[in-house]
Design a protein around this nucleic acid. Structure first.
Length: 944
RNA sequence: GGGUCUGUAGCUCAGACGGUUAGAGCGCACCCCUGAUAAGGGUGAGGUCGGGAGUUCGACUCUCUCCAGACCCA
């Protein structure tokens, strides 16, 4: 007789080899076929909503790991919320306007069209963005992210564009918008402002000038230096400033000094003239004297920069007509020049900031074409470079040019024209942080948000507290327009500004942002168009995305504002979280989200950021193509996301190992449930104790996992899952179970009991996996016995546990805990015997346990079934007193163990070595237990 | 230079309130099994908790400082 045929081995079509790379696309096709996203929405109709609002990735470029981390974390959360019983719609978005796309398009269709036909240019941008979205969408779908992929929100959708305009209207209505000057990079050839990204630094040879600015009140200056008027000998006293941009001298409005530097009063003769006093930084006196060609000089006195503050000097161009104050500038250095810095607030960022701080005039006499305005004396109509020459000559003729020279330095240039850029203070539109208390409103709103991790709150709080007003306007073409009209003479906004927003929005809804640029002004302001200028600026792209709670959440009925969660990388505290907060606070006075979760950036195995030059970049595509999306998802989920997320080949190998173990555990469960029907389930009271332990263990873990999903601690889930597979299942329960499953009659109570437990465990297990290992879970789902939803995602956390299993089972659990400890000690002794060559398989051994009374009482409960726990041919419990010296003490008090090689022959069916093998004439090679199991009523089990 | 973080065995992670020989799984080494088999089981060796200083009877856990790394600014 071939006893092998009488054994119930696991059998399943569920493959051991995952072959995810091939199988995952099939699963995607399945989800597509059953229209999973729609089915989920139908299923969620009556449920409470929980909305994760997607932060729109920029619609340009290949997906990198950062994208993958972000979208997968979102997907895990949305899926877990769905399985927790919420309706959790996910509408992906894309950020479509803005500079990077303009640049890409410029590369494709050339630079000219941008200026000659902005309308065609915008069209090309729209087309480009659409193509990029297609590529990125496919990538995200391949990762197993479930969402409304073919009905996403795009910031360039006509309706979204229109709603962006309306959002701006609400903000203006609430008094947050202001018009003010700000310095911008400016290219005279482009005749437009440049974004930071359009500026490149190149070496440039610039003329430099050292300019004398005469003290208005000589005696006051002398006093600062501790000198009396009569000490001065009536010699002139001047500050000397140095600059590489002589053309900015007409706009001079201050001299900046460092408060901590020492400044000297130097007596010398310049250009063979009469002796005079110059003020120079102490450390630079020598180099200046050398540069000026002065041999003899005398340092008369010195004073600190802070003492000089407030002293007035004559303007370098306007001379006596315009006194210029000395102010504090922390940015002043001693690298070059004189230590006294010519400050023109209309022509530089730092100068502008100082100008704001000291309430100086922000004077910009240079037009968009890079030429001086016609009302500027001396240089009217000249290009700045020519202006510089005229200014220099003027200074020379007046004797105020102390020295002129050239210098080679790194200077900002337009990346298109390679022309040196200039700074121009130009009127821009701002969201004011103070005008209508936006800063305070936002800071308050921050307190009402749950920040995950907690320190996110301090981070964004600090940023909002210290940020400047938000400059909204950009001199670009591909963006949501600032739909304003200003009066040609007064510069005032059109009185109907708020209504105009709505008029424009209506048109934009029909024809996109081009409606604003292309339609005649009379469409919007009728006859007034003669008196008003249309603002042609577009909005900062951060406004587009920052307004999506208004433009998208408020306008799609499946979504909610505020959202349940925003989730992005930690760079977005400054980016999207903040722009969204400010827009929402400006409109509604509240945050647009209940919670904000941030994750770290991906880094390599050494914790360094990924970069081309280091060559440590791993792309999501590469992982998916080699290992599968589920492995990528497992990596994302098993990595703690609060700090940096490390990835390397080794880490991916470990992740794959872990994946395989999880998969095989599922496969073993499935294989042993082959042919199992729900009607085969055994009642809780009828189940063997070990199986009840297993179910209770799973129930405890189930609670922990649900809790971990709820608190977004996915790496903990991965650890617990893995440990469960290895320690609780493979290392104990399933190993012990094999004898019962394989050798007992197919439909025996004991075997069905095991299957009942395995069935419940599998039901829970597949759900634990689903949010993370979505493809694999769905694959397993089809192998779980019983009728069920078409997709695991249409189910919820498992609650089909036997009712009685939920009751207190602490006593039983304690008992098994002890049994497991004993088993571990037995294993240790078995291993020693193996090392000695005494046994190989544990079934070759008989073990004797010499126990204290207490332990003996515990273990003897299992009777003859103890041997199934130890997986040995026999396991006897003896009193300690009967122990002989061949027993080994264990780490457990009151337990010693003796292992002996069994002398009985091996039952070829169950492999146990027992004295009764061959006692049945008909079955000379097997034990009586097996005889009963194949031809009798079957053995009885109560515990194991 | 500033702000917000991170640094526990080769890898991924645990370690309220400071208090016994710092835990787990993987990997590794060795062994077993061949009825989960491109699987499974067992045993074992690995950290003094980034470095240093301090507070304390006592610190991985508190303070300071240094180093390395990340993000955001300057």
């Amino acid at each position: 007789m071939n006893y092998k045929d009488t054994i119930n081995l696991p059998k399943t079509d569920f493959p051991m080899r995952a072959n995810l790379v091939k199988r995952e696309p099939d699963m995607l096709a399945f989800w597509d076929e059953i229209d999973l996203y729609t089915r989920l929405r139908e299923a969620g109709r009556a449920r409470k909503k929980w909305v994760l609002h997607d932060g729109p990735p920029y619609a340009n470029g290949a997906l990198h790991l950062g994208h993958a981390v972000n979208k997968i974390l979102k997907d895990v959360i949305v899926k877990s919320k769905t399985m927790a019983g919420y309706d959790s719609p996910y509408v992906p978005g894309w950020d479509c306007h803005g500079l990077p796309i303009e640049h890409e398009v410029e590369k494709k269709i050339g630079r000219e069209i941008y200026r000659t036909d902005p309308s065609a240019f915008r069209k090309a941008c729209r087309k480009f963005a659409t193509e990029q979205i297609d590529v990125q969408r496919n990538g995200f779908i391949r990762m197993g992210v479930i969402g409304d992929w073919f009905n996403p929100y795009l910031t360039m959708n006509y309706e979204t564009e229109a709603n962006g305009i309306r959002a701006l209207a609400r903000i203006m209505e609430n008094g947050h918008i202001m018009h003010d000057l700000m310095t911008v990079y400016w290219c005279s050839d482009c005749a437009s402002a440049l974004a930071e990204a359009e500026v490149e630094f190149m070496d440039k040879i610039s003329p430099t000038v050292d300019v004398r600015m005469m003290a208005i009140d000589r005696s006051a200056v002398m006093q600062v230096f501790g000198k009396q008027e009569n000490d001065a000998d009536a010699m002139s006293v001047s500050a000397v400033v140095w600059t590489t941009t002589a053309w900015t001298l007409p706009a001079n409005r201050a001299i900046a000094v460092h408060p901590d530097f020492k400044y000297c009063l130097v007596r010398c003769s310049i250009n063979a003239g009469a002796d005079e006093y110059l003020i120079l930084a102490e450390e630079l006196v020598a180099s200046c004297m050398a540069r000026y060609g002065v041999g003899q000089h005398e340092i008369i006195a010195s004073a600190s920069g802070s003492e000089l503050v407030g002293v007035e000097f004559g303007h370098p161009i306007d001379k006596d007509d315009r006194p210029v104050p000395t102010i504090v500038g922390e940015h002043v250095t001693l690298d070059a020049g004189t230590g006294l810095v010519h400050t023109a607030p209309g022509h530089g960022q730092e100068d502008f900031d100082l100008g704001k701080r000291y309430n100086l005039e922000i004077y910009n006499p240079v037009g968009p074409d890079g030429k001086f305005l016609l009302d500027v004396p001396h240089v009217a109509g000249l290009a700045v470079e020519d202006g510089a020459k005229v200014v220099t000559e003027l200074l020379r003729s007046r004797g105020d040019l102390v020295c002129s020279d050239v210098i080679e330095h790194s200077y900002a240039h337009c990346w298109r024209h390679k022309t040196p850029i200039i700074f121009r203070a130009t009127p821009q539109w701002f969201v004011s942080m103070e005008r209508a208390n936006l800063r305070d409103t936002a800071l308050d709103a921050i307190k009402n948000v749950q920040w995950v991790p907690k320190w996110g709150e301090a981070r964004i709080d600090g940023m909002v507290r210290n940020r400047p007003d938000w400059c909204l306007s950009r001199q670009r073409v591909w963006g949501t327009p600032l739909t304003l009209y200003t009066h040609k003479q007064t510069g005032e906004l059109h009185p109907d500004a708020l209504e105009i927003f709505e008029r424009v929005a209506k048109k934009v809804e029909q024809g996109g942002i081009d409606a604003w640029f292309d339609l005649d002004d009379s469409e919007f302001i009728g006859e007034d168009s003669a008196d008003y200028d249309k603002v042609t600026d577009v909005l900062d792209v951060w406004f587009d995305s920052g307004a999506t709670h208004y433009s998208v959440l408020d306008n799609r009925c499946e979504l909610t504002n505020p959202a349940g969660m925003y989730l992005e990388g930690s760079d977005q505290h400054r980016g999207w979280f903040q722009s969204s907060l400010l827009v929402s606070a400006a409109i509604n006075g509240t945050a647009p989200y209940h919670s904000v979760l941030t994750h770290g950036f991906t880094v390599d195995g050494e914790g360094r950021k990924m970069s081309k030059s280091v060559g440590n970049i791993i792309s999501p595509q590469e992982v998916i193509d080699k290992l599968g999306a589920d492995v990528l998802r497992l990596w994302v989920s098993s990595t703690e996301y609060e700090a940096e997320m490390g990835i390397s080949q080794e880490i991916l190998i470990r992740t794959t190992d872990s994946y395989r173990r999880i998969r095989n555990t599922a496969r073993f469960l499935v294989g042993n449930l082959n042919g199992f029907d729900l009607s085969d389930c055994i009642a809780w009271d009828e189940m063997l104790e070990l199986d009840r332990w297993a179910v209770r263990t799973a129930i405890i873990l189930n609670g922990e996992i649900e809790q971990a999903y709820e608190s977004y601690r996915f790496h903990v889930i991965c650890q617990k899952l893995h440990r469960f597979c290895i320690v609780d299942m493979g290392g104990f329960y399933l190993d012990v179970l094999k004898d019962r499953l394989y050798t007992m009659p197919r439909d025996s109570r004991a075997r069905r009991s095991a299957q009942t437990a395995m069935y419940h465990i599998l039901e829970a297990f597949v759900r634990w996996l689903a949010p993370i290992l979505s493809f694999t879970a769905e694959e397993i789902w089809k192998f779980v016995p019983g009728d069920r939803e078409q997709s695991v995602f249409l189910s919820q956390w498992y609650d089909g546990w036997p009712k009685a299993a939920m009751s207190d089972g602490a006593m039983e659990m304690d008992f098994w805990k002890k049994v497991i400890e004993v088993r571990e000690e037995v294993n240790r002794q078995l291993e020693k015997s193996r090392e000695k060559g005494l046994i190989g398989s544990a079934l070759a051994a008989d073990v004797s346990l010499y126990c204290s009374d207490e332990l003996r009482e515990t273990l003897s409960r299992l009777g003859d079934e103890l041997r199934f726990v130890t997986i040995t041919s026999s396991a006897s419990v003896q009193p300690v007193e009967s122990m002989n010296n061949s027993a080994e003490k264990s780490d457990i008090d009151g337990l010693a163990i003796k292992v002996a090689k069994s002398e009985y022959s091996k039952c070829i069916r169950c492999w146990h070595q027992t004295p009764d093998v061959g006692h049945d004439e008909q079955h000379p090679e097997i034990c009586l237990r097996c005889v009963s199991n194949i031809s009798g009523s079957g053995e009885q089990r109560h515990y194991v």
